[in-house]
Design a protein around this nucleic acid. Structure first.
Length: 256
DNA sequence: ATGGTCGGGAACCGA
């Protein structure tokens, strides 16, 4: 069972690229981030024609997440507890094929310091609380998405340029590290412990051509899911396509 | 050197 995550950066502009990738990669489940559209405007017909069901938590213009799946998914929720005033569409949870899937789009948090960074750190604390509750279930769980956290300097091409960025700040990294230490497996890093792996290259300044990338899209596995991991990787070639997203898909294969 | 490039949606904001 292949479970993937892909920040498409606008489903409207990216639909042809997404359909190409679905046909080629044939994932069983895909968490999408930054669809940047209202739920009602999601291209359900095109996704269904491609063979996928869709659970969509949209938002006009910004954010927005979805879970695509070959077999129907049962939605569990679309809010991350802990802030009733949070209007941003960044979370969706579902059961698919015996796996508990959480699709997340973690706040960027720039500039630092400021209210956006405070929101990011608070969001990470809320995520940690939900993750702890899920972990206690001892079920196979995947936390999949754009985490907007670059876990270590090994995960960024130009750590000197990014040192003050919210994606690399110690406050962000400490929360990510604590989450992993609480019992989750960072699937990509577990399968590629020493390799240079990036999942995002900025549109600006020729970052792709210079391979100035970041690893910020992650798949965290509960122990029951990690026990079933066969492989994990990224589809790097997607970044080179016409009208590409600035992120590439990441995926994990679980036995069964 | 404070740029450089996208998407959404119609002037900028967010990344």
């Amino acid at each position: 069972m292949r479970i993937a995550s892909f920040n498409v950066n606008g489903i409207g502009a990216r639909l042809p690229r997404l359909l190409d990738w679905l046909a080629e990669a044939k994932p069983d489940v895909v968490c999408l981030q930054e669809i940047k559209t209202e739920t009602a405007r999601f291209p359900f017909d095109a996704i269904e024609d491609a063979g996928y069901h869709a659970l969509v938590h949209g938002q006009k213009g910004f954010n927005g997440v979805a879970i695509l799946s070959r077999e129907p998914a049962e939605e569990v929720g679309r809010t991350l507890a802990g802030n009733d005033g949070d209007e941003q569409s960044r979370w969706i949870e579902a059961e698919v094929g015996g796996i508990h899937i959480c699709g997340l789009y973690l706040p960027n948090g720039n500039p630092v310091p400021g209210p956006k960074f405070d929101y990011k750190l608070d969001w990470m604390d809320r995520l940690a609380a939900r993750a702890a509750a899920l972990l206690a279930s001892e079920r196979p769980i995947v936390l999949a998405g754009d985490w907007n956290v670059c876990p270590t300097d090994h995960d960024v091409a130009r750590p000197d340029m990014m040192a003050e960025d919210a994606l690399c700040r110690p406050e962000s990294r400490a929360r990510f590290r604590a989450l992993v230490a609480s019992g989750w497996t960072d699937a990509i890093r577990a399968r590629h412990p020493h390799a240079e792996v990036y999942t995002y290259w900025d549109y600006q300044a020729g970052a792709w051509a210079k391979n100035w990338g970041l690893r910020i899209d992650h798949l965290l596995l509960s122990p029951a899911a990690a026990d079933r991991m066969l492989d994990a990787g990224i589809d790097r070639d997607v970044r080179a396509g016409e009208r590409a997203s600035d992120h590439v898909p990441v995926w994990v294969d679980l036995a069964g």
